[in-house]
Amino acid sequence: MGVSQLGEDEGVELRMSADAKQLAVVRTVAADIAMRQDFDLDSIEDLKLAVDETCSTLITLAAPKVVLSCRFVVAQDGAIHVFAQVPSNGSAPPDRESFGWRVLTALVDSVTTWVEPATTGDGHVVHIDLVKRSAGTVDE
């Protein structure tokens, strides 16, 4: 399910400096949203770790002094969609062969990533989107 199907104005969006010091905030928000959706404890931890890995990966790719955006949207089926992005000087996507990427894909139901040219100025924007369903939620 893409962004347009979920709605641009839905959910909770965090905008923070692309700095590892901010990871605790985004993990806390992820856990709170999962708890409100009655995710079990293991699923809550998986989402927290996945969001941490997503944002950590984007921080390593970020241009200096930029803002990382992380938006959480709860779909009608209860799945949590996370849309994260950061401006980057490079055009390379995250390394899909890395240990971190393998951990990320094991923690969530789906992960996609892509890079697009920045709409303002030079550079690119690196995106990582993920979906996490509660252990009791079935895929349609």
Rank of each mutant, 00 (worst) to 15 (best):
P94H: 01
T28P: 10
Q5P: 14
S110K: 11
W101Y: 05
R36P: 15
T28W: 01
V26G: 08
G121R: 02
S69A: 01
E13R: 14
V126S: 08
I80W: 00
L6A: 07
V138R: 14
I80L: 02
T57M: 02
G7F: 10
V108Q: 04
A62E: 13
V103C: 15
A30M: 04
E45M: 05
H81Y: 12
C55K: 05
F39Q: 12
T120L: 00
F83L: 12
P64F: 00
R133I: 05
I33Q: 08
V67S: 09
D109T: 09
Q76D: 06
V125M: 10
F39E: 05
D32M: 00
V138A: 14
A50T: 09
G11F: 01
S69F: 04
S17D: 11
A79K: 05
T60I: 03
L47E: 01
E116D: 14
P64M: 01
A24M: 14
E10S: 06
A34Y: 00
I128V: 11
V138H: 14
A106M: 06
P93E: 00
T28E: 04
K48G: 10
F83T: 13
R133L: 06
D46A: 15
D129R: 09
Q22H: 10
D122W: 02
V125L: 07
E10V: 00
T113M: 06
R71C: 01
E13T: 15
C70M: 13
S88Q: 11
P87W: 04
T113S: 12
F72M: 08
T60N: 09
L104M: 15
D19I: 01
D42Y: 00
D139F: 10
R27D: 06
R15H: 10
R133G: 09
F72K: 13
R96L: 15
D95M: 11
T112H: 08
R71Q: 03
I128R: 08
A34T: 00
D40P: 12
T112W: 01
M16K: 10
V108C: 09
M16H: 13
Q76M: 04
